[in-house]
Computed example of a mutant assay.
Amino acid sequence: MDKHSVFKSWWLPILFALPQIALILLFFYWPAVAVMQWAFTLEPPFGGAAEFVGWANFQDVFADPFYWNSVVVSLIFSLCGTVFTIVVGLVLALAVERQLPGSGLFRFLYILPYAIAGPAAGMAFRFILSPERGLMASVNAIFPDFWNPAKYGSHALVLVIIIFAWKWAGYTFIFLLAGLQSVPRALTEAAAMDGAGPIRRAVDIQIPMLAPTLFFLLVIMMTEGFVGADTFGIVHNTTGGGPNHGTEVMVFRIVDEAFKGLNYSGASAQSIVLIGLIMVFTFIQFRFIEKRVHYK
């Protein structure tokens, strides 16, 4: 017989849900409404009455060449960071899933970077890959200026992508390893008996059966690359958006515009555009990529 709780008073379940509802209203809906209001008004930086300006904030944003540069940088960062992170996590998961001696230790080590905060990882890699005293100093001694994130924007963008992938590879590793463990062992054993090697079994059997997990990680990592707290933290502590706006992703530009430039209205307009861009990419992923995903 099924047992379930029945509330005798109508107000009791509402009372239990009230703290969660209050948190949602306070930290989600109220900021969202405020951003929508600021995007269409001119907010004085030091307080005062706001003036309704309609679409003027969006016109200023779209007329700014540095804003379009941040859009391009965000697209490159998010796409490259997502692909690199998933590929690294997949390779690590395939290696650990073979259950070789010591795989339990490596499973712990691979997950460990995910527990490190993004700003801390950025600060560490800033010294590890420093062109003057880091690992790349010996390479620069042979090939001068081969690696200099402080001088070249492309090098700095590669640096933050590497940090992002190192930080989040453990996250993708967890899901991909769980997905590999759900693949029927009989399939891989039969393929091994037919002479298929580990790479062949991975390409023909394991990776195709990971399609739902890979699609989930694609959506999550693309969103994290655009608006994640680690994205801002890594860029802020590593490059500060430079050199020459080479790593100025959209989320970093929004925060910099709001809290340094005190342009709350422009930052709000950029936030709405960023949300719209994420919605477009998510729609494309579910509309075209999910068709190739088989859940059975």
Rank of each mutant, 00 (worst) to 15 (best):
G122T: 10
M123E: 10
A124N: 07
F125Q: 01
R126L: 15
R126V: 06
F127N: 09
F127K: 07
L129M: 10
L129Y: 14
S130P: 03
S130H: 10
R133L: 14
R133A: 11
M136D: 01
A137R: 11
N140K: 06
A141Q: 09
P144K: 00
D145I: 05
D145G: 06
F146N: 08
W147G: 01
P149L: 05
Y152H: 12
G153Q: 09
G153C: 08
V158G: 05
V160R: 01
I162H: 01
I162A: 06
I162M: 11
F164K: 01
W166L: 03
W166I: 04
W166D: 03
W166V: 02
K167A: 00
K167R: 13
G170L: 06
G170P: 06
G170V: 03
Y171H: 02
L177W: 03
L177Q: 04
A178G: 07
S182F: 04
V183Q: 10
P184S: 14
L187T: 07
L187P: 00
L187K: 08
T188G: 08
E189G: 10
E189D: 15
E189M: 13
E189I: 09
A190C: 13
A191I: 08
A192T: 12
D194N: 08
A196I: 01
G197E: 12
G197R: 10
P198I: 04
P198H: 12
P198D: 04
P198G: 04
I199V: 15
I199N: 06
I199T: 14
I199E: 09
R200C: 04
R200V: 04
R201Y: 02
A202Y: 07
A202L: 08
V203S: 11
D204F: 13
D204S: 13
Q206I: 00
P208G: 12
M209A: 07
L210W: 11
L210Y: 04
L210C: 07
A211D: 13
T213L: 06
T213A: 13
L214Y: 09
